[in-house]
Nucleic acid binder design. Structure first.
Lengths: 194, 194
DNA sequence: GCCTGTGAAGGCATTCACAGCA
DNA sequence: TGCTGTGAATGCCTTCACAGGC
């Protein structure tokens, strides 16, 4: 988030204080300083942080100095939207495969990639060295897809299916659940008089 | 999340224990009990919780006994995907408006709704009693859209734009940031070797 | 015997507050 | 004077552990 805030700064701006960054990120300035202190002591007392240096250091810490290859499984509306999504961090994340179990979709192309059948998934992950898998299937298929991904060597999964999936140790999952987000909003609306 | 887990249970299952629910949700059983205890004492010692009753109570707490009207601003790939998204909680959330500032998109229809220009946004929110707004614009437009939404009376915002937006008190924002999610995955991959 | 409800303990993240340095 | 870096204080969330009830 700090990286994003730094990138939104005008190019000329050489330095930034924890107060400024806190305002941009919507957090407390002490938190900014403590967070950034984990990277090392890159700030200058009385002055602030050097924007370019900080961007570089955060990028290094996040592992953004290299590209990561990504496969997407489940090419419905959401999968297609993600495949087209230009916002994937300056192309640090390269999409190298689209998979769907619907034979009718096989061979259709989305953003210069061709949709492949599920039986090619494991081979493709190995061949193309994919380490991230995105699941955009319906909920019932999510666990099976996660198993396939993990088995084939994917070590990080972004799960958009509305289901909790279980994976082996060493594989990391993050869940993005649109309908849960809406339900949380519903809760707040309901709470604050409604 | 518990609600989702309960809904995934076979219809016949009358009761459920905190241990079972914990396994489904991927959390500690003490946490389940503590969380559910905020709803009231609906469990029976030695037995567990009644599935149907629990679903009802959670739904009530979340404000899901009524429908909420939603507008989506920014009808690119992601906005379109969300408009089509059948998974919006059993239609508890009704999409009542699609808006985009691109004149070429005006009048196009998506899932039985027609894309409208931005100058109709405020009127539509008032007329159709929308209380939730979804922002799927590019980052630079997000703040302006958020201001418009808040001004027009929307009280909850789901922000998919990769930007931190500032809104008046009384308006609630949740952020879903796909590229941040990927960067977090990148961090873990980077961390755990290679 | 089994499972809930909950005080108490523990752990983690945030914030405070200020010493230290430019 | 201005702003960082960080111990100490705070507060929150999670987990433990067990009394209480079926």
């Amino acid at each position: 988030m700090y990286l994003r805030c730094l990138e939104s700064l005008p190019p000329g701006q050489g330095g930034v204080s924890s107060d400024q960054l806190a305002a941009l990120a919507g957090v407390n300035s002490a938190k900014v300083r403590k967070d950034l202190s984990y990277l090392g002591s890159y700030g200058v007392r009385g002055v602030g942080y050097d924007v370019e240096h900080l961007k570089l250091q955060i990028g290094l810490e996040l592992g953004l100095e290299r590209d990561w290859s990504v496969v997407i499984v489940g090419i419905g509306n959401l999968g297609r939207a993600l495949a087209n999504y230009a916002g994937f961090g300056d192309r640090r994340f390269r999409i190298v495969g689209l998979f769907d179990n619907d034979p009718d979709k096989e061979g259709l192309s989305v953003d210069s990639l061709v949709i492949e059948p599920m039986d090619r998934l494991a081979g493709a992950i190995a061949d193309r060295r994919a380490s991230i898998g995105i699941i955009t299937t319906p909920a019932p298929a999510a666990q099976e897809v996660a198993d396939l991904l993990a088995m084939a060597g994917v070590r990080s999964i972004l799960n958009f299916a509305p289901a909790v999936i279980r994976i082996p140790d060493g594989v990391d999952v993050r869940r993005v659940d649109l309908s849960t987000e809406l339900q949380v909003l519903s809760f707040y609306l309901h709470r604050t008089a409604g």
